[in-house]
Amino acid sequence: MPLKLFHTYSRLMRFDDRESRPARCMTDKLAAIREVWDKWVERLPYLYNPEPDVTVDEQLVPFRGCCPFQQYMPSKPAKYGIKSWVASESSYAWKMQVYTGKSTSGCPEKNQGLRVVLDVTEGLRGHNVTCDNFFNSYELGQQLLKRKITMVGTVRKNKPELPPALLGSKEREVFSSKFAFTPTTTLVSYLPKKNKNVVLLSTLHKDGDTSDREDRKPIIILEFNRNKGGVDNLDKVIGAYSCRRMTARWPLVIFHNIIDVSSYDCLCDLDRDQPNLDVS
């Protein structure tokens, strides 16, 4: 394709009816690409059956332009961009949801982390979900158990359900662990450094096993570390091999991300379908 023709197509590309867009934007900030996005997301779960371990995390697509729901995340390499919630397995994006900020009423959403995990894991059964402390809570663990789904993740220390005995770190030995149990949930407080502890919650583990390593990390932490990087690895791969182009239009940024994620998901499917060949 000639470069001039490619630039023409890029300028003219739209994903909805511009005349009816203002009315739809009153109730949906994603109206400019909503129809394309929903049809694509609907197809993702049909193309791949995830393994038992699924990761839920956030993705930030780089963008510095005019967008009503652009996010600033200093922990991400791009810092500014469009955020999506992703449920992935081995970096395969199984289900995604664009975060469009506060609702049109302007009221902040309560229990957002719980709602996101329940949304992007809809349809799973018999899996284990790994997520960080933004999403994790005791209530989420109980809701997932009703769907036959277990969960492992870090927990913020301001959660009211945490027992005070797990929060203190003074006068504790480095690499020590404290456990708390209910019939369905296991909590662990681990001290990796002096006066600094991390708290994790699991509905998968039923005992207080620790590893034989020098740092004596609990099995719950090893399980969390093994699965937590699924979405981060997806970002890394599509960032290195991307079709993104410079644009000031946020719907085109989302469309480029759709192509990037679809391309990587196709590679995951091909890799899984390859037979194990004996070349000896």
Results as ranks from 00 to 15, higher is better:
Lys148Ser: 15
Leu60Ile: 03
Leu140His: 12
Arg125Thr: 14
Lys76Asp: 01
Leu187Arg: 06
Gln59Trp: 00
Val231Gln: 06
Leu12Trp: 09
Leu3His: 14
Lys110Arg: 15
Val129Phe: 08
Gly106Lys: 14
Leu30Glu: 00
Glu19Ser: 12
Arg272Ala: 11
Ser75Leu: 12
Thr104Gly: 01
Thr100Asn: 02
Arg216Trp: 01
Val61Cys: 07
Arg34Leu: 05
Thr150Trp: 08
Pro2His: 14
Ser88Phe: 00
Pro163Ile: 02
Leu30Pro: 02
Arg249Met: 11
Leu167His: 01
Pro45Asp: 00
Ala31Asn: 02
Trp250Pro: 04
Gly123His: 08
Asp215Thr: 08
Ser137Asn: 08
His127Arg: 15
Val98Gln: 04
Val188Thr: 06
Lys217Ala: 14
Ile221Thr: 04
Ser10Asp: 10
Thr27Gln: 14
Lys79Leu: 08
Gly153Ile: 10
Ser90Leu: 11
Ser91His: 13
Ile259Val: 15
Thr121Val: 13
Thr150Leu: 10
Asn158Asp: 12
Glu42Pro: 00
Tyr48Met: 00
Asn111Val: 03
Val199Glu: 02
Val56Gln: 01
Ser262Tyr: 04
Val198Cys: 07
Pro2Ala: 13
Asp265Phe: 06
Ser103Ile: 10
Lys194Glu: 06
Gln59Val: 04
Val56Leu: 04
Glu223Lys: 15
Pro50Trp: 03
Gly106Met: 12
Lys148Ala: 13
Thr55Gln: 01
Thr130His: 13
Arg18His: 11
Tyr72Arg: 10
Asn227Val: 08
Val61Met: 06
Tyr99Gln: 09
Phe179Ala: 12
Glu173Tyr: 05
Leu144Asp: 05
Val188Ile: 04
Leu201Val: 03
Ala32Tyr: 06
Thr154Arg: 15
Arg43Ala: 05
Ser189Lys: 01
Gly208Ile: 07
Gly126Lys: 13
Gln142Leu: 15
Ser242Lys: 12
Glu223Ile: 06
Ser169Ala: 15
Asp209Met: 06
Leu201Gln: 03
Leu118Tyr: 04
Val36Lys: 01
Gly101Trp: 03
Tyr264Thr: 00
Thr130Trp: 13
Thr104Phe: 05
Gly126Gln: 10
Ala31Thr: 00
Glu19Tyr: 09
Pro68Asn: 11
Leu167Pro: 00
Glu19Met: 09
Glu35Asp: 10
Met151Pro: 01
Met1Trp: 09
Gln71Glu: 09
Thr104Ser: 13
Ser202Ala: 01
His256Thr: 06
Leu267Lys: 13
Lys228Leu: 12
Pro50Phe: 01
Val116Arg: 04
Trp37Ser: 01
Pro52Asn: 04
Glu58His: 05
Leu118Glu: 10
Tyr80Ser: 03
Trp85Ala: 13
Val86Trp: 05
Trp37Gly: 00
